[in-house]
Amino acid sequence: MIERIAALGRSGLDILEAMGRSGMVLFHALWAWPNVRTSFPLLVKQIYAVGVLSMVIIVVSGLFIGMVLALQGYNILNRYGSEQALGQMVALTLLRELGPVVTALLFAGRAGSALTAEIGLMKTTEQLASMEMIGVDPLRRIVSPRFWAGFICMPTLALIFSSVGVLGAYAVGVLWLGVDGGSFWSNMQGSVEWGEDVMNGFIKSVVFGVVVTWIAVFQGYDTVPTSEGISRSTTRTVVYASLAVLGLDFILTAVMFGEL
């Protein structure tokens, strides 16, 4: 029994230590922003790797989720004869919840795991150590541009996801199922608030972007330098990032929309 409690305490300390180390990685990576001439091309490269390469999965998922929402929503709303409320239902669902959350989950799976594997491989093949021997801090050179790229790309991807989702819903609802296009848009505009819905969703996606990239980058940097270590940290990135996103989503939703 005592042993169990001791083990619990130990794992608690381990978690706390890992959090401390991850905080230090983040702090060191962001502490000094190196000069613009050398770091901007690095950032562009990472935005390409993290953002542009995630576009396909985000656009396709956004389109299908928007279309499914329209189909399901139409069937339910039709029973109450209020299918013109389809636009507002789809838009609010996407902007407040599905946009940020689904994008973050896909982002963790597509970009987060790639970041972890890439940095982990660099550590395993001693690239980080050799960079350090050349006299360049790998935290600034490797970690920092990747972190900023995630910070920029995740909200952008979430915005694209929501937009494409609304267009998908328009295609199914208006063009296929015959909801009146005018009332689709006007109902949406009447109920969607810029500050309340769009901005809060945006804030959510920024928070998710920071958390997912942070976890991905840290897991890569902290990986055990073997091929088994890389596969473990990649799995951990997806699991931890997904759990963090869902947990934070509840907290953020409670803070943002809870009192209404």
């Binding site: 390409y48 790309c153 609304v166 006007s186 009447g190 969607v192």
Partner: peptide
């Protein structure tokens, strides 16, 4: 590479304009 990133940022900008004007009726 730079063109692709530029296009990505442009699409992001279009998305925010779309959400602002068309969806939230701002």
């Amino acid at each position: 590479l730079e063109l692709a990133v530029g296009g990505f940022m442009l699409i992001g900008l279009l998305a925010i304009i779309f959400l602002a004007l068309r969806v939230s009726g701002l």
